[in-house]
Nucleic acid binder design. Structure first.
Ligand SMILES: [Mn+2]
Ligand SMILES: [Mn+2]
Ligand SMILES: [Zn+2]
Ligand SMILES: [Zn+2]
Lengths: 133, 133
DNA sequence: GTTATTATTGATAATAGTTATCGTTCTTGG
DNA sequence: CCAAGAACGATAACTATTATCAATAATAAC
């Protein structure tokens, strides 16, 4: 049973009030800007505690762990290698097939992570414009 | 054009002669055991160079980067959270659907990573036996 | 309602994985 | 040969994260 201290509540609120995929450092800066000065160790501990309590969800992207709200349904991510933006999608057929593959391998699946890498629509437009130099 | 020095060749051979998903540290130890004493910085640089040359392929798993042979067809991974073993699979329907999702979002996909987490068959068997204590 | 117990915090040290620096060594084309 | 560039190895530096520990806050016992 997690204890929602003032610091943890601030972390949770910040995450719940956005659609971002936060890492610890960015979150600490945002909280600081919002008037909460929370030690970086407390941020890390709070994120871990909130994740274990199921109040936020986490994923690994590159070398850092990112956190987002857990009050939205499961989804996967399109990651833009140019601007770093992250779009979300859900595809039931992919989910189904994953369950199928797991059962074929007698593998007891308890989660998955699908990242699609590439260039987002925005960045594609910009690069087309930029090319007429 | 990559230059295959003795060190890089040793790294490449070690990777090509196995089906493992190597991280830098484990690889360094294996090379050392095999008689090649290669500086850890050279290992990291070599892995990066070999990856850029397309001679090996890489993926992020948790907090470390893993490398494997690139002479096998694209595949995704089942990762056992108990013993750490990695099984490989390929599912054309999942691949297709990913392309479909990307095009729907006007996203120019140039790669993806699908990790399925869970417990492998081996570990499931062992845990069943262990439970009759 | 004080006191003892326990949990949490924040500063900071420590760790893990990786990259940068730099002097030395190896290649290679002239 | 020999000069120029590439690669190497030791190690410092860096980034993300966890551990330590004294101080503080919350909770439980009398
Ligand atoms: Mn998301
Ligand atoms: Mn593989
Ligand atoms: Zn973009
Ligand atoms: Zn296993």
């Amino acid at each position: 049973m997690i204890k929602l201290t003032a610091q943890r509540q601030a972390i949770l609120d910040m995450i719940n009030q956005s659609n971002q995929h936060w890492d610890a450092e960015i979150l600490a800066r945002a909280l600081s800007d919002a008037g909460h000065s929370i030690g970086i160790a407390t941020i890390y501990r709070g994120l871990t505690a909130l994740e274990q309590a199921g109040l936020i969800q986490a994923m690994h992207l590159g070398d850092k762990k990112r956190y987002e709200r857990s009050d939205k349904a499961h989804h996967d991510h399109l990651v833009c290698g140019s601007c770093g933006s992250i779009e979300e999608f859900f595809d039931e057929q992919i989910e189904q097939r994953q369950r199928h593959v797991a059962s074929q391998y007698h593998f007891q699946m308890n989660g998955h992570q699908l990242l699609i890498f590439g260039i987002c629509q925005q960045c594609l437009k910009l690069s087309v414009k930029g090319e007429q130099s």
